[in-house]
Computed example of a mutant assay.
Amino acid sequence: MISKEELKELAITRLKKYLFPDFTNKLTWFVVTVGGAVILTPTAFKQIFYNWLVDTFNLNYGVYSTFAELDSSNSDYILGFSLIALALLHNVANRYFIYKAGDIAELEAEKSQEADRKLFDRFLTEFPSNSRSLTLLKEHDFGNSYHDNNTDEIDNFVDTWNTAETEFLDEGLEAARKELYEKLHTFIYKLSQSSGYIGNGPMLSAVPNAYRGEWEWPDFVDTRINELNKLGTECYGLHQQFITLGRRKLKC
């Protein structure tokens, strides 16, 4: 919510920009310079300049022409001030269109951020840091058994978060989401390949039945467990990084 003070400061800033435009436009500088020269140049110097132009024309085209004597009048001042006024109007119009384009870009950015914020809120609802799946990734040693519902949030994320509707418009957020998705997809695929139910219950284990309860496992079992533990830790880290990035970018 924007406060009254912020609105007032924004209005003053915009007013300054329109009332005191900067002279960065080369055309504006040129026209103002010409207008100032017309106003400030004495009539005698203008007579010399105009006669030089007429003489140059006569020399090149073989036609003899003359230029009437100049008298001090208000016409030069009207012309000079008109040029300056036109230059100022041009500069103001130029700055207006620049600021208008900036306003449009800012509005589009706000809409994009709002869409990303809604999608990020959905992610936090479906896959929060206190979910069973995050606890599994963070704390579980896959040398031990685990409940089959402990991967529900991971399964849902892998099943539903790889569509056009779940892509973030912010490039940084989308890159982080995609990295998290790919890592979790790899993890859950390897976990499903390595695990089996213990009896008829809901518990799963990555240790084959033949070696469960043994003091020492074959090398392939140790390799499997170490790989799952490492992947789980990496997934947890990426999940937390994604949440931190989203909160920083979306201010939520």
Rank of each mutant, 00 (worst) to 15 (best):
E139N: 14
V31A: 05
N130L: 11
K230P: 01
Q193C: 00
D152Y: 12
A101P: 01
G62Y: 06
D148F: 15
E153P: 07
E216D: 12
A176L: 06
K230A: 14
L7Y: 11
A115Y: 12
R177M: 13
W217Q: 07
F45A: 00
E110N: 15
D155I: 15
N91Q: 08
E114R: 12
T166H: 03
G35E: 00
A109T: 09
A101L: 06
E227M: 06
W29L: 14
A11E: 12
G201K: 10
T163L: 14
K100L: 14
F30T: 03
T244L: 12
M203G: 01
D71W: 03
W29G: 00
F127I: 07
P218F: 00
D55I: 13
N94L: 14
Y211N: 09
L79N: 03
L88D: 04
T56E: 11
L245E: 01
L231H: 05
A176C: 06
T43G: 01
S73R: 04
F20L: 14
D155W: 09
A101F: 02
W217T: 00
P128Y: 10
I104C: 01
D22M: 14
R95D: 06
A37E: 04
N58C: 08
G143E: 12
F220K: 01
Y189S: 14
L7A: 09
I12E: 13
A164I: 10
L191G: 05
T160H: 10
L7D: 07
L228C: 02
I154G: 05
Y236G: 04
E108M: 09
L15V: 11
V207M: 07
Y64R: 04
R247T: 11
V207G: 09
V221T: 07
H140Y: 07
T43P: 01
E69I: 02
K190Y: 08
L10S: 13
Y50F: 05
Y18D: 01
G196V: 10
K16F: 09
L89G: 05
T66W: 02
G213E: 10
S65Y: 14
K118I: 12
A206Q: 08
P42N: 01
Y77S: 06
T135Q: 15
V54Y: 00
N60Y: 09
L53N: 06
A85N: 00
E174S: 04
K17H: 03
Y77V: 10
L89E: 03
L79K: 04
N91K: 04
A105R: 06
N58M: 02
P218K: 02
G201C: 05
G172N: 02
C252M: 15
I2A: 11
T233K: 15
E106Q: 11
I39F: 05
S65R: 13
T223C: 00
Y61F: 13
K111E: 11
T135L: 10
I78A: 11
L134Q: 14
L7M: 13
A11H: 10
A93N: 11
V54S: 02
